[in-house]
Simulated scan of single mutants.
Amino acid sequence: MLEQAAAALNRQDYQTAAKLIAVLVEQRPDDHQVQLYSAKLQEATDRLDNALEIYRMLLKHAVNVKITAEARQGIQRIERIQSQSQADALAQARTGSDVNTAPGYLVLEPISQEHKQAVVAKFAAIMELDPYSARLQLPSRGWRLYRLGQMSELEFYRDRLLQAEIPCFCVSQPDTQQVFVFQVGHVSSFHPQATIVCSDDRSELRTVNFNWSEVTQIVSGMLPIFEEVMEIDARNRTYRKPKVLDYVHVCDLQLRDRRSIFRLCSQTYDFSEYKQALHQQRDRTNNGNPDDRLNGNFGGLSNTQRIPATSRDNWKNVMAQISERLADVPHQNNFTPFADTAIGYPEAIGRIEPHLELLRRADSNWDRAFHLYSMLSMCRDRDRD
């Protein structure tokens, strides 16, 4: 029957070959020769992904030199076909009548190690990489800013990656620029709605009110503060070296329907105004009860919470107030892995306005990377609804 299957394949009688090979696979599922004919049938009937999977399995497990040689040739044939097909499709995407020439960003989303093993070969084929490089480039901890280019090309890769079950998304650069960003000075009231004192792009102070239900997403991260410190090398010579001395906390409240972001920062937040607002709120809550004041019960909060000792404590209390009201709102807070890849594009990142005014000795692309991270989060959240 094996010879009959081979003869049917040679004369391109694929219907007969399929029937014979189906019987052989059921009778001898571990026979590498049968598996080779099955792969050839899949290849001949344009089931290239199935054929490629069988060829790779044979290349890994078969011991017969002739079978491994034919499997290797089959892999090479299919990879040439797929590469040419992808090149033709990409050329069409770049030159088609509906080509989108706007610049954009392609972002890979994290996948588990188990799933990475299953899709690394597909990723390598799509991005024309060797398997080792493909495995290193698939993220497992957070987003990876993978490619910049015109949207038609990025959408081409996005569609193929999603077909291969590799999570990703792309966003056009103009979309990330159509959002109003307000730098928050302080929240003057948390109840019943938010009243925020902030500054706009022209550094003009304004007071904005919104309902907490309008917040669609929270995005947070920590920005390193670099300083040059003196170090001593093995030869007892001093030299300057940049070192992270501290971190600044940043939190964005995104109101998608208003196309607005309210950006809070631990370094620039006016905590004196915050504490004054707390005292006023507790005075109203306790209605001037002297027993409550003597016992330290100001609206159910302890003295430690009422009068924080450090800016870090102040920031935690502000975030606690916000988190209490936005407990069910999605929170994107895995910024650092994304920033590690984003700062690898200094020319593109360097043109981004960070909408942050931090006390730094030198400019930092980390601030710009956070702004891009927040914009991408907002656009992705909008597009998936």
Rank of each mutant, 00 (worst) to 15 (best):
L2F: 15
E3F: 09
Q4W: 04
L20D: 02
I21N: 00
V23G: 11
Q27H: 09
D30G: 09
T45S: 05
H61K: 12
A62Y: 09
N64H: 07
Q86C: 06
A87Q: 15
L90I: 09
T95P: 02
V99F: 08
T101V: 12
K122W: 04
F123P: 02
L136F: 09
S140E: 13
R141V: 14
G149P: 02
R160P: 03
L161N: 03
C168K: 05
P174N: 06
F180M: 10
F182V: 01
F190V: 00
P192T: 06
P192Q: 00
C198Q: 02
D200Y: 06
S203I: 11
L205W: 04
T207V: 15
S213E: 14
V215M: 00
R237A: 09
R240D: 12
P242A: 11
V244H: 05
D246Y: 08
H249S: 14
H249L: 11
C251A: 10
L264R: 03
S266E: 05
Q267N: 09
Q267H: 10
S272G: 14
L278K: 05
G300I: 01
N303M: 15
R306V: 13
A327F: 10
T336H: 08
F338T: 02
I343H: 07
I343S: 06
R351I: 14
R351C: 11
L356M: 15
L358Q: 03
L372K: 00
S377H: 02
R382E: 12
